[in-house]
Each structure stands twice: as structure tokens, then as C-alpha cells.
Design a protein around this nucleic acid. Structure first.
Length: 426
RNA sequence: GCGGCUAUCGUCAAGAGGUUAAGACACAGGAUUGUGGCUCCUGUAUUCGAGGGUUCGAAUCCCUUUAGCCGCCCCA
């Protein structure tokens, strides 16, 4: 038997219905805040992600799914296809494509800011685990064009509203500032200086991180390493005036929005484009992949992708994790719909015709197709919670009527066949 | 990329070298010949994720493999 690829899932009807609820809620909230939907390709030029997410990030280094056609694969094998230059990749996140589209469609030429949202699959080749899949769904928003810290707060506010509406347990907002390139550079030097004599005692990963991005050493999960780097300088204490002020302003805005937060200097986003604000919303009800929503400011990204200098802020929200963390909204099962049951082949075409008319009038109806006994059909109609059953057999045909059974009341009446539409519309 | 655990019907499971592979739910049929919900009866795994091996004998022991779950890492 052919099975689905590792880390992917089939969404069965019940799940799809829940997802639809989430999507609709997200769309509604985005409407309240003035974010408008954007859709972009499922795959993009590989170089887009190399330049935005960052060549040193795990995502680009080892987790991207490359896409290649059969013809290009042949070409590649013969050395005629530059996979680096022309290659395509299944999108691993949504911010870079959004910004690419913003630039390519010259949305910056309109009155600013530009507020966009998106929903859809992303792909990363990680080892599957609770709350982590190779194809996962993200809701995201991007608030493009303003450096006002209110924007950061609004982006966070929308995410918090979503959680609030879904009654997520034990949610916690954590914020930090990762500074701008200039204060980060100065801090890196400071940190490297502090770590210089300690790095040889740290774990392998940390020794690599020392050169690539020493910030990442700070959230190493190994206890011994944490002990050794105790008392390290904190980026938040070494921000440049501009970044420090921005962070203060963010906190003021959050307070004005009545949002509780924790300043967590350990938040270091794994995507290279972040500047200043970085935040996460976590839920303890989730297991080890506890981050439901993560995001931050990326003031340099638009320019990095050859657009005009444009400060922006946004988030990505893991829909799959939302689904896990949300408390089941128990909807009461209601009877609905009409079950059409023909007894005998000759009677069937009359019911097929009736079904068409019913649907034209906006009635939900289904036709019995299992060739089972009347008793078995009634049993089925009851279990499927149909509101009514129409029975049309030989005796009804002779009398020119159809039997209309109300499954709630358990009552049935004979209705003239030609009048059944009117009766049902009442 | 590295670790740990699991795998028996559609689902949840019992099963500790010799059982006719329990049971429950679900599904199907009937009791009720054209009428649902309760009740009762009946049916549904030559086979235990797959492939090898040990043994007179394997769902049970060994090896290999696949899949899933969970943790590290990373992230949403």
C-alpha cells in the first residue's frame, strides 16, 4: 500500500471543519485590523529564501524541499542546469514570498502602510514530532511600511485576539529586542569577548555557533553550558538609543492595549532577517513544541530583496498547533437535511428529479444509494441525523403522493407528489 | 542529524512457546415481510506492520526492515 510521505497528514472531514472555523476567525480578525489577503506561489526561486531567511539558518542549510521537473533533472544530471541559480523550492515560510510580491507588484508605490495576511502550507524537512510536520499550515500577517512600535503591538494584538477567541490555555506573550545590525554587531563582539575563554568547554553545537551566530549559544538547552555562560552580557542592555527607545515604545503600546507580557531575553529568532522586536506566544498545553506564534520586526528585509528601504513587522502562527491547543468547541449535533428513499427502480428517477429541484430551492438532500431495506435505510437516516425522510414506493406512486416523515417528531404524512416542494419550503 | 518507545479486525484492545487469536465499540443482516432511537440474535482476523531465522510447534524468542509516536536539535 502506498502511504503518505513522512510528516504529512490527511485532513479528514471533521478536521477540515475545525480548520474552516479557524480560517474564518482569522479572516474576520484580519478584517477588523485592516489586513487584506495575499496569495503567492507554493514554490519560489531558491535564492529568495537564501537571501531572506539566511544562508546560515537551519531552514536554508538543510530543511528546504527543492523542486525540480523531470526535464530539468535530466539537464541537471548532464550539468546543464544550475540548481543554485535557477532552482525552485517549496516555500518554508511566508514572509519572504509576501515581501517578494510586495516588491515585484510595486505595492510600495501605493499609499503606505501595506497590511497583508496569508494562510497556507509551508514545507520543511524536519524530523516529525508532536506539533511539528513537514507540511504545516501557517497563518501570517505582515505590517509593511512603518517603523512605529505601535505596529509591532498591533501585530501582537491580533495574534493575542486570536488566542483569546479560541480560549487557548496558559498562553504567554514573551517579547525581546534583537537590535539592529549596528547595535547587534557591537554586541556580538562584546559577547564573543565574554565567551572567548569559555567556548572550548561548551558543547559542539555551541562551538559552531560561536562563529556563525553567538547569540544562539544563549539559548542552548544543555544545562552545563548554561552554567558556564552565567552572567553573560544581555543584548537588551546594550541596544543603541534608537532600538532601546523602540522597545520602550513597544512596551507602552502593549500596556495601552491591556496586554500582559514577559520580557524574555532568550528569544532569538532563527530566521536571519529579524531586527528589533522579536516575540513568541507559547502555550504550556502543547508539549515540547510550545510556540504557537512567533514573529518580529524585519526592517532590512525589503531592501535586502531589492525593494526600497521599508520597515516592517509580522508574525507566523502555526495553525496545526492552534488546533491542538484550542479547547474543543462543542457544537451540538442538529438534525438537518432530507433523505430521499425510493422503493423500486421505477420510483427512483422521480426522486432523482425531485432532488435536483430541492437543491435548486436551497435544500440540502441526499439520495439513498445502498439498496438496503426500508428498515435499514431508516436506521441510517436516523444515525446520520437527517431531519426528514421522503419515501416514494409503489403504493405512493399509485396514489400520486409521497411520504414525508419528520424524524424529530416521528410523525409522517402523505403529501401530493406535486406539492412536496411547497410543503418543504414552509 | 542523534536518542527513546510502540506496532494484534475499521477503532480501542486481551494475549508471557501449544487457545479454535478473547472482549467491547463500529459495520452488516435479522427478530419487526414498507418505517429510526431501546432490547435480543447472527455475521465479520487461516492471521498478529513486513521479511528472514530459532523450534516438533511462534502473535509470543532472535535478527533485519518499515511506519507511527515522543524527546534533542530547530521552529510555527
Amino acid at each position: 500500500m502506498i502511504q503518505k510521505p513522512k510528516g504529512t497528514r490527511d485532513m479528514l472531514p471533521e478536521t477540515c471543519e475545525k480548520i474552516r472555523i479557524l480560517e474564518n476567525l482569522f479572516i474576520e480578525l484580519c478584517g477588523l485590523y485592516g489586513f487584506r489577503e495575499i496569495r503567492f506561489p507554493m514554490f519560489e526561486k531558491t535564492s529568495l529564501f537564501e537571501r531572506s531567511v539566511g544562508e546560515s539558518s537551519d531552514i536554508v542549510r538543510k530543511e528546504m524541499f527543492r523542486v525540480i521537473s523531470g526535464a530539468n533533472l535530466d539537464k541537471y544530471c548532464r550539468g546543464g542546469y544550475d540548481i543554485q541559480k535557477e532552482g525552485l523550492t517549496l516555500r518554508p515560510e511566508g514572509t519572504a514570498p509576501t515581501i517578494r510580491s510586495f516588491i515585484e507588484n510595486k505595492l510600495y508605490a501605493d499609499a503606505q502602510p501595506t497590511k497583508l495576511f496569508y494562510m497556507g502550507s509551508n514545507f520543511r524537512n524536519e524530523r516529525p514530532q508532536a506539533g511539528r510536520f513537514r507540511e504545516f499550515t501557517q497563518f501570517g500577517i505582515e505590517f509593511i511600511g512603518s517603523e512605529d512600535a505601535y505596529c509591532d503591538a498591533e501585530v501582537i494584538g491580533l495574534a493575542m485576539d486570536m488566542m483569546e477567541r479560541l480560549d487557548i490555555d496558559d498562553k504567554e506573550l514573551r517579547i525581546n529586542s534583537v537590535g539592529c545590525p549596528s547595535c547587534r554587531k557591537a554586541y556580538h563582539e562584546l559577547l564573543r569577548g565574554f565567551l572567548a575563554d569559555k567556548v572550548q568547554y561548551l558543547c559542539h553545537d555551541c562551538q559552531d555557533r560561536y562563529d556563525i551566530n553567538p547569540l544562539r549559544i544563549l539559548d542552548c538547552k544543555i544545562e552545563a553550558d548554561q552554567q558556564r555562560i552565567k552572567g553573560h552580557p544581555v543584548l537588551l542592555d546594550h541596544l543603541c538609543d534608537d532600538c532601546a527607545q523602540h522597545f520602550e515604545s513597544l512596551k507602552e503600546n502593549l500596556s495601552a492595549m491591556e496586554l500582559d507580557y514577559i520580557v524574555d531575553t532568550g528569544i532569538v529568532r532563527g530566521l536571519d532577517y529579524y531586527t528589533k522586536t522579536a516575540f513568541e506566544i507559547v502555550s504550556s498545553s502543547l508539549g515540547s513544541q510550545s510556540t504557537i506564534c512567533g514573529g518580529g520586526r524585519y526592517d532590512g528585509l525589503v531592501e535586502e530583496l531589492d525593494g526600497p528601504p521599508t520597515p516592517s513587522v509580522g508574525f507566523g502562527m502555526g495553525m496545526d498547533r492552534l488546533l491542538m491547543a484550542m479547547n474543543d468547541l462543542d457544537e451540538k449535533e442538529e438534525r438537518k437535511g432530507i433523505f430521499l428513499l425510493a422503493l423500486g427502480v421505477e420510483q427512483k428517477s422521480a426522486l432523482v428529479n425531485l432532488a435536483v429541484k430541492l437543491r435548486r430551492e436551497g435544500h440540502y438532500c441526499e439520495v439513498e444509494v445502498m439498496q438496503r431495506s426500508l428498515r435499514a435505510s431508516m436506521k441510517y437516516a436516523n444515525k446520520q441525523l437527517f431531519k426528514a425522510v421522503l419515501v416514494y414506493g409503489e403504493s405512493e406512486k399509485e396514489k400520486g403522493v409521497i411520504l414525508y416523515r419528520d424524524m424529530e417528531k416521528g410523525e409522517q404524512i402523505e403529501v401530493e407528489f406535486d406539492r412536496i416542494l411547497e410543503v418543504l419550503s414552509e
